[in-house]
Design a binder for these strands. Structure first.
Length: 235
DNA sequence: GCGACAG
DNA sequence: ATCTTGTCGC
């Protein structure tokens, strides 16, 4: 698919190397997040949903990314791609995108079909600058995106019902920035936030449709397994 | 200034 | 993210 980042670097400007440069990029791109929902309906037959994940080996300075596209209705794999690269940015809370996107965009660019939705590991609008990894990847590709995280990051939430589908607002003070969503009865919830061109209710519906059995969406499970395999594949 | 902090 | 075995439970 077409990724305007080409091999992972935005056109015109080199990838940020310092925290200050990275924060400036977030400030510049945040206005490009679309609010209107143009993602396919959750579980829509034939709709394509792509999970993206990245694995690291800091000792070998290596990263591997994977993009796995599933049919939204059957959750079967339609196509998948991987990419390997060097670590270009350290992990800094709030700047995760600058560490993950170069390799992730490379893997995405190797997909033949453009998906209707991207599912990222981490957050979108639930971010200090309201521009987390999911929003960043959504804006760069133009594809609607959501973020599904495994921990609440900087945010708080009230009690979440014990049944699958129960949820509670993720709050930054008074502002709702996402949702703690139970995908499996009695299991720790996941933390969903809007990335780009998707509403929060729709994002939650997508997550539930993508996670019929396990805590995490099948998209992220598949992408996680694949990028780990790709990392150890080529020493 | 110090601690917390998606992956 | 990653270092790591067995074990409890559906």
């Amino acid at each position: 698919m077409d990724v305007i980042t080409g091999r992972g670097t935005p056109p015109g400007a080199p990838w940020p190397r310092t925290e200050a440069e990275a924060r400036a990029v977030q400030d510049a791109l945040r206005a490009r997040v679309e609010r209107a929902d143009r993602a396919p309906a959750p579980g829509a037959p034939g709709a394509l949903v792509t999970g993206v994940d990245v694995a690291y080996d800091d000792d070998r300075d290596a990263v591997a990314a994977a993009a796995v596209t599933l049919d939204a209705a059957t959750l079967e794999v339609v196509e998948q791609a991987t990419a390997r690269a060097r670590v270009v940015f350290p992990y800094v809370p709030g700047l995760l995108a600058f560490r993950e996107i170069p390799a992730a965009a490379d893997a995405l660019s190797r997909l033949r079909q453009r998906p209707g939705l991207l599912v990222c590991d981490g957050y979108g609008l639930a971010h200090p600058k309201r521009f987390g990894l999911a929003s960043h990847l959504g804006v760069l590709t133009g594809v609607p995106s959501i973020g599904v995280a495994k921990s609440p990051f900087l945010y708080r939430h009230g009690p979440v019902g014990e049944e699958r589908g129960d949820g509670a607002p993720l709050l930054d003070g008074e502002e709702e920035v996402g949702r703690a969503l139970r995908t499996r009865a009695g299991v720790k919830p996941v933390f969903v936030s809007v990335g780009h061109a998707v509403s929060l209710p729709a994002a939650c519906a997508h997550v539930l449709a993508l996670a019929p059995r396990y805590r995490l969406p099948e998209t992220t499970r598949r992408a996680d397994t694949l990028c780990r395999a790709a990392l150890r594949a080529a020493p």
